[in-house]
């Protein structure tokens, strides 16, 4: 099965790192085929930051995301520009602090207090990326939460690790409770 996950936000929200954590969880620990691509040179593009993953048990031939199964949007612009191609059966997870305007009643869309949780648990906005990862780990059964924890340990610096793991678990709870 081919799965497509896309994360979009702005610079400073750790989007690329979140993509790398997902890629590592799937690619190294779950031994799946993955391809991670991203908008290149984001700094020059009004701060838009994006990471996209294609995950499969088979060879991945088309490396770009076409119709995401999961889209995480952490800014209004991210929602505006990236939500359309998401599958009808797919989900759009939006941060309720940054995303305020929606098109009609989008059945795919759910709002979560991702930024707020990041602030509450770590005191820093940037942890919104791991909160989001926690959330989708709970919501999306393709993701192995143990592999995610391992990948976070690999990629987040020692001194920020415990806070980030905490934020991850808070995000996980948010999804688990539903």
């Amino acid at each position: 099965m081919r799965h497509e996950i896309q994360l979009v936000g702005q610079g400073g929200q750790g989007i690329r790192l979140a993509g790398a954590i997902l890629a590592r969880a799937f690619g190294i620990y779950d031994k799946k085929n993955i391809v991670e691509t991203h908008l290149y040179g984001a700094a020059a593009r009004g701060g838009l930051s994006e990471s996209e993953l294609v995950i499969s048990d088979e060879e991945i031939y088309y490396v770009k995301v076409q119709n995401p199964d999961v889209l995480i949007v952490l800014s209004q612009r991210a929602y505006d520009d990236f939500s359309e191609p998401v599958k009808n059966s797919g989900v759009i997870l939006a941060d309720d602090f940054y995303v305020k305007n929606f098109k009609g009643d989008d059945k795919r869309l759910t709002l979560y207090p991702l930024t707020r949780i990041a602030l509450d648990t770590t005191g820093s906005l940037i942890a919104v990326n791991v909160v989001s990862l926690g959330l989708i780990s709970a919501l999306y059964s393709v993701i192995n939460v143990e592999s995610m924890r391992k990948a976070i340990r690999d990629l987040i610096r020692e001194k920020h690790l415990s806070k980030n793991l905490e934020a991850f678990e808070e995000g996980y709870k948010l999804g688990d409770n539903r």
């Binding site: 790398a20 890629a23 690619g27 190294i28 085929n33 993955i34 391809v35 991670e36 691509t37 991203h38 290149y40 991945i60 490396v63």
Partner: peptide, 8 residues
């Protein structure tokens, strides 16, 4: 594409 993407 090939230069920037990551895969295993």
């Amino acid at each position: 594409v090939i230069s920037q993407m990551k895969e295993q």
